[in-house]
Structure formats: structure tokens, C-alpha cells
Simulated assay, not measured.
Amino acid sequence: MSEIVDLVGESILSWRNTSASDGTWEGNQLKTTADAQAHQLLVKYLRNLAPDIPIISEEDSYSQTKKRPDRYFLIDPIDGTASFSGGFPGYVTQIAFIELGQPKLAAVRAPEFSQTFLAESGNGAFLNGVRLSLSGELAPPILIDNYPSPRGISEKLFKELKCEKYVECGGISLKICRIADGTADLFVKNVIVRDWDVAPAQLILEEAGGFVYDFDIRPISYSGHFDINGTIATRSYVFVEKMKNYGLR
């Protein structure tokens, strides 16, 4: 899986500033030719790797109605399409292998940063081959989201939790990975997200020692509907407790 996301990531990078990066909005989703091309590459490589394992993809409309099987690959060809199309670096291509509703393997490639995040359930998370491990004393949290400055729930969190710093980042997956690598401490999304946005990065953060829940602070299962009621990703459960104390959750 590592080699696959690296190869697809390099292809996506080569499509920047070409017509493949031009986007059109379908509802609240931005779609580009590059999304479809990356989907085709991921499917091709995964079928060569494991032809008997089903593939669920954001770019396959059938995936939005299909019941999740017991074992499958869950892919997001470009998570952070708006960043990709807009000329910003905050996008990734990613794969999770799901078994019985939980991610067991994950690979996330951030092409603009030449970074590959990998995780295996029970065996840790790695960034470019270096093990990720969240440790050290907790300070006022560093909050991460995709706006230039905190908005909505992030603005409330930044104020009430007396956050030390705010980091702007692109797609959902990369924000969660940035908690795993120590760049940030807390990311909260209080709107519906999709399973392909979250699953790979969830395993990476949890294997690094962090926590991922839905917005109701419940474990996320990848065996049901593809919609997830928001996301809380954090390096420490202490920040979740503080959110509850301040009535932010």
C-alpha cells in the first residue's frame, strides 16, 4: 500500500496546474478530472495487489449506497480536492484496509510534502519510516482546521480552551495526520463527514497514541453508513474532557 500511494501521489502532483486540476462543484463536493484519474490508478494497483478484496471509493457513486462488506479497501483518491484545485498543498491520497468495521492498515501520501504516513493495527504508525509516538507534557492545545483563522466550533474551542496556536491545513485526513506527527493537538468537525475521509488517518493517529471519535464522542465504525456525525481527533483525551466541561460537546 505504501508503494501504491507514493506512485499515485506523484501522478497527482504532476497534474497540478493542468486542466486536470480544474474543478466543478457537485452539491458541496468539488470534483476534478484528477480525482477520477487517481481513482482509476488506485483501483488498478489494488486489484493487482489483492484482486479478491472489494474496493470502496469516494469517486464511485455505487459506494455511497453499497453496504460495507466485512473486508474491503476504502480509498479517497484526493482528500482535500479544494486545496489541490486551488493551488494549496493540503491534500493527500489515501487507502485503508477495513476488517469487521475497523481500519487494520492505512497509507496516506501528502505529495506536496513528500510525506508518507503508514499504520498497522497493533504495530504502530510511521512517517517516512520514522515511528510516530505522542508523548511529553500537555500544554495549551494547538488547534488545527482548514480556514485562515478559527471559525464556528473552532473559534469557540480556541477561546474556551485557551489554545496556544492555530494551524491552517487542508483536507480532513491531513489535519488528523498533523496531530499524529505532533504539529497540532486537536481537530474538531461538527458537520457530517464521510468514512473515506477519516478511516486511514484515524488508524495513524490512534497507533501514534491519539484518539478519534465522532462528534458525540463515540467510536467510529466502518461497517454501516458512509456518513459520520462529525469528528473529534486529539492527541489526548484531556482535551475531550475539557470540551465537555465547557459545554462544547
Rank of each mutant, 00 (worst) to 15 (best):
Ile153Met: 06
Glu168Cys: 11
Ile172Gln: 11
Leu174Lys: 14
Gln202Cys: 04
Leu138Glu: 02
Gln202Arg: 15
Ala199Arg: 14
Asn146His: 06
Val167Pro: 03
Tyr166Phe: 04
Pro140Ser: 15
Asp145Ala: 15
Phe187Met: 08
Gly182Phe: 03
Ala180Cys: 04
Lys156Phe: 00
Glu168Thr: 14
Ile144Lys: 10
Leu138Ile: 02
Lys165Pro: 07
Val167Ser: 08
Glu168Gln: 15
Lys175Val: 01
Arg194Met: 09
Lys165Glu: 07
Leu203Glu: 05
Asn123Val: 03
Ile153Glu: 02
Ala180Ile: 04
Asn146Phe: 01
Gly210Phe: 06
Cys163Phe: 10
Glu137Ile: 04
Phe126Leu: 09
Lys162Ala: 13
Ile192Lys: 10
Asn146Val: 00
Ile176Asn: 07
Pro200Asp: 05
Pro150Cys: 04
Asp185Trp: 12
Ile153Thr: 02
Pro150Trp: 11
Ala139Asp: 09
Val167Asn: 07
Lys162Gly: 13
Lys175Met: 12
Arg131Trp: 05
Asn146Leu: 00
Leu157Val: 06
Glu164Asn: 11
Ile179Lys: 09
Asn190Ala: 01
Thr183Cys: 05
Val188Ile: 12
Val191Ser: 13
Gln202Glu: 12
Glu168Ile: 11
Arg194Lys: 12
Gln202Trp: 05
Gly170Phe: 01
Phe158Glu: 04
Pro140Tyr: 10
Ala125Leu: 07
Ile176Cys: 06
Leu186Gln: 14
Ser149Asn: 04
Ala139Ser: 13
Phe158Trp: 06
Ile144Val: 12
Leu134Glu: 07
Val167Met: 11
Ile176Met: 07
Gly170Pro: 01
Leu127Ala: 09
Gly129Thr: 09
Gly124Ile: 06
Lys189Trp: 12
Lys159Ala: 10
Val188Gln: 12
Gly124Lys: 14
Pro140Asp: 14
Ser133Thr: 12
Phe187Val: 05
Gly124Glu: 10
Tyr166Glu: 00
Leu161His: 06
Ile142Trp: 05
Ile142Thr: 15
Pro141Met: 14
Leu174His: 13
Trp196Glu: 11
Ala199Ser: 12
Tyr166Ser: 00
Arg131Gln: 15
Ile192His: 05
Glu137Tyr: 06
Val191Glu: 00
Trp196Gln: 13
Glu155Met: 04
Val193Glu: 11
Gly182Ile: 03
Asn128Glu: 04
Val167Glu: 11
Glu206Leu: 04
Asp185Val: 07
Tyr166Asn: 00
Glu207Gln: 15
Ile179Gly: 05
Lys156Ser: 02
Phe158Ala: 03
Cys169Asp: 14
Ser154Pro: 00
Asp181Thr: 08
Ala208His: 10
Ser173Arg: 06
Ala139Cys: 04
Gly171Gln: 09
Gly124His: 12
Ile153Leu: 01
Leu157Phe: 02
Lys159Leu: 08
Pro150Gly: 08
Leu138Val: 01
Tyr166Trp: 00
